[in-house]
């Protein structure tokens, strides 16, 4: 599927690089913005499949991107947004995912260097999935060390982290070099230890995990 993408990035070098990367992967960059001031209007007009958005933008270079993402989602609740940042922070992830994590991604900017994985992440977010950077997942997990998390085995923690990154069972099995059946067993054990109802779809599963991480 060819994606129609809007990019918001103030660094010319990086913006042009990402445009090149996405174009060469067969996607269409329909809009390029240097700040988020006109993002809401641009999204309303172009209705892109995905917005790729930097966190630090003019004029204050702090967290404009996070605010813009939240504003776009409140106007267009289904707009898929991938937020890129030089640093990823648990607090921003929590703000981004506060209402709904469908079609939200939050990755370190340097992940663009893994070209195939990055385009794959764009596609997952555009398709309504949730993609979180492993660094954010580590922060979320490290804030909740006490309680039921103590009961998780190291392997189960690993699986939970990969789930929160938005990986499918097949993806997790491939990364850990185990069978899908083994992954399913780990996941049902995690859900029972955390007292969560195991749910049918992968997306609901990620939601349950995130909800647990943010609110426990």
């Amino acid at each position: 599927m060819t994606m129609r993408i809007v990019i918001v990035e103030d660094s010319v070098l990086l913006r042009e690089g990402i445009v090149r990367l996405l174009s060469e992967s067969g996607h269409e960059v329909v809009g390029q913005l240097v700040d988020a001031t006109t993002l809401l209007a641009t999204v309303g007009e172009l209705r892109p499949d995905l917005v790729v958005l930097d966190v630090r933008l003019p004029p204050t270079f702090t967290d404009e991107g996070i605010e813009a993402a939240v504003a776009v989602r409140s106007e267009h609740p289904t707009q898929a947004i991938l937020v890129l940042s030089q640093y990823v922070e648990e607090r921003y992830a929590t703000e981004l995912l506060a209402n709904d994590s469908e079609g939200i991604g939050y990755l370190l900017k340097e992940r663009v260097a893994d070209v195939g994985d990055f385009v794959d992440a764009c596609q997952r977010v555009a398709g309504g999935g949730t993609v979180l950077d492993p660094e954010v997942v580590a922060q979320l997990l490290s804030r909740r060390r006490r309680g039921p998390f103590d009961d998780l085995t190291p392997r189960e923690r690993e699986v939970l982290g990969l789930m929160a990154e938005g990986r499918s069972n097949v993806g997790i099995a491939r990364m850990l070099v185990v069978s899908e059946g083994a992954v399913e067993k780990h996941i049902s054990s995690i859900f029972s230890k955390l007292g969560l109802a195991s749910s049918d779809t992968e997306h609901r599963r990620v939601l349950a995990v995130l909800h647990y991480l943010q609110h426990s």
């Binding site: 967290d63 640093y87 922070e89 648990e90 660094e135 580590a138 922060q139 997990l141 490290s142």
Partner: peptide, 25 residues
């Protein structure tokens, strides 16, 4: 850390705890 300016001490400490090999409360 930029997040210290933007969100304060508690938010900034999150990434420290994530990198600590010892559990941090």
């Amino acid at each position: 850390p930029a997040v210290l300016t933007d969100r304060g001490l508690d938010a900034a400490v999150s990434s420290l705890t994530a990198r600590s090999p010892i559990p941090v409360d």
